[in-house]
């Protein structure tokens, strides 16, 4: 953007052009919430899958299905771990964001105090 003197209407036209050229992706008001829910769902689904695989294995003898059930159980465990990781990361992101805002606020207050305001 130029900083040269322009008439209001010329500036408005330039502004209109810049607004039209902006990339807008729609955004998400609260993306962490979506990821938190997804993480929780993955965790629950993983645990349920593993439990089903384990309980089915308990009740059956060795057979052709055993390997499938082991694979299903392992997949369930992986899902549960990924879900838990997502849940923890998103929870921490939210917590640290509030922490950072608090730090900035306190620093600003301290600067005002030092400057005698």
């Amino acid at each position: 953007m130029s900083n040269t003197e322009t008439t209001p209407s010329a500036r408005l036209q330039e502004f209109q052009g810049e607004v039209d050229a902006m990339k807008v992706d729609g955004g998400k008001a609260n993306p962490e919430r979506t990821w938190l829910i997804l993480g929780s769902l993955l965790m629950i689904a993983g645990i349920v899958l593993s439990l089903i695989a384990w309980l089915t294995l308990q009740g059956s003898g060795k057979g052709a299905k055993t390997e499938d059930l082991i694979a299903m159980g392992t997949f369930g465990l992986v899902l549960a771990v990924v879900g838990a990781a997502l849940f923890i990361v998103m929870s921490l992101r939210r917590y640290f964001r509030f922490w950072l805002v608090r730090l900035i606020f306190e620093q600003r207050e301290a600067a005002d105090r030092i400057a005698g305001k």
Binding site: M1, F15, E18, V19, D20, V24, D25, A29
Partner: peptide, 26 residues
């Protein structure tokens, strides 16, 4: 980022646009 409704700048809906892009635009 608004969770609902429309933010219009010069008639264009810009929900979700980054603050630096808006600052650069004026």
């Amino acid at each position: 980022v608004p969770s609902g409704g429309q933010l219009l700048i010069s008639g264009r809906e810009v929900n979700g646009v980054s603050s630096d892009a808006l600052a650069r635009a004026g």
